[in-house]
């Protein structure tokens, strides 16, 4: 009987130990990578991306952009990049067209009574995007794959980025035929331009992007940026401050600028160097 009990106990202990081992084995994936044998698309590679795009949600002018982006992927999830976008065309927004259609064709004969700008003066005063550039750090924690309609398959990764943006704006025209900074001629607008609304603007850059991989050295890239800058896109006085020597003369200066988002998206083709991408273990 003793032998029987001891055998049974030994077997139960053995069973429990084996079960515990079995359970332990089930969790063997703990600490393991989610994906094995993955193509390491990014680490230690340079990326060069010619792209085109456009600004969006702008108040007065949309810009069509052509540019290039260069990025070095130091790690799988960390990269450093620069980009440059040149505005090849600027197109009036719906708001600009609405305002233009409302304004008179010529200035009022007494601008002290009606200081509305004419169509031409309004459009001349707007600033114009010439180019923008940025330096940034990108963080790429997400990668995956998707199937479209169950037919097309693509690998992708997603990143967010932050850095500094540089925007060069061409100042609006300030034609002396339409402005008088002494306000002696009331057929012209009483403005004094201390600072124009152009020049280089610097601000924080934020964005995110997607890459869809076609080959190990080629991807289609989508990026969305915003550069937050202070600007006076309309080009007129926004604060109501006047010349201390003449209260009828409104002053256009840096105080009329306000923070705005210069948002843009680009679509490009990314080339990666070296062209070989190893697999992970």
């Amino acid at each position: 009987m003793k032998k029987l009990v001891s055998t049974a106990i030994a077997l139960m202990i053995g069973f429990c130990a084996v079960s515990a081992y079995a359970q332990e084995r089930e969790s063997i994936l703990d600490g393991q990578p989610a994906v094995r044998r993955r193509v390491m698309f990014l680490p230690k590679r340079f990326e060069l991306t010619p792209h085109f795009g456009a600004t969006y949600l702008q108040d007065f002018k949309h810009s069509l952009l052509v540019g290039v982006r260069a990025e070095f992927h130091a790690l799988e999830w960390l990269s450093f990049g620069v980009f440059f976008d040149y505005a090849v065309a600027n197109i009036d927004t719906g708001l600009t067209n609405e305002i233009e259609s409302t304004l008179p064709s010529t200035l009022n004969t007494n601008t002290l009574v009606d200081p509305s700008p004419s169509k031409r003066v309004m459009k001349d005063a707007l600033d114009t995007l010439m180019f923008k550039a940025g330096v940034y750090v990108a963080y790429t924690p997400w990668f995956g794959k998707l199937s479209l309609f169950g037919k097309l398959f693509a690998k992708f990764d997603m990143h967010i980025l932050a850095g500094a943006g540089f925007v060069f704006l061409k100042a609006g025209k300030f034609d002396s035929r339409f402005y008088d900074d002494t306000c002696t001629d009331h057929t012209r607008l009483c403005f004094k331009r201390v600072d124009d609304n152009g020049g280089l603007k610097i601000g924080p850059l934020l964005g995110f992007g997607l890459r869809f991989w076609a080959l190990r050295w080629l991807a289609v890239s989508f990026t969305f940026h915003t550069i937050i800058i202070k600007r006076n896109s309309a080009g007129f006085d926004a604060t109501g401050d006047t010349d201390p020597n003449n209260p009828n003369v409104l002053v256009i200066d840096k105080k009329d600028e306000s923070w705005e988002n210069l948002m843009s998206f680009t679509v490009g083709v990314s080339f990666f160097f070296p062209t070989k991408a190893p697999r992970s273990k």
């Binding site: 994906v35 044998r37 993955r38 995956g144 794959k145 998707l146 309609f149 169950g150 398959f153």
Partner: peptide, 17 residues
């Protein structure tokens, strides 16, 4: 050979339909 590696003709995750 690995998740996240869509191969040619791979049915993929959650094929619609």
């Amino acid at each position: 050979p690995g998740a996240g590696e869509p191969g040619a003709g791979e049915p993929g995750a959650g094929e619609p339909g």
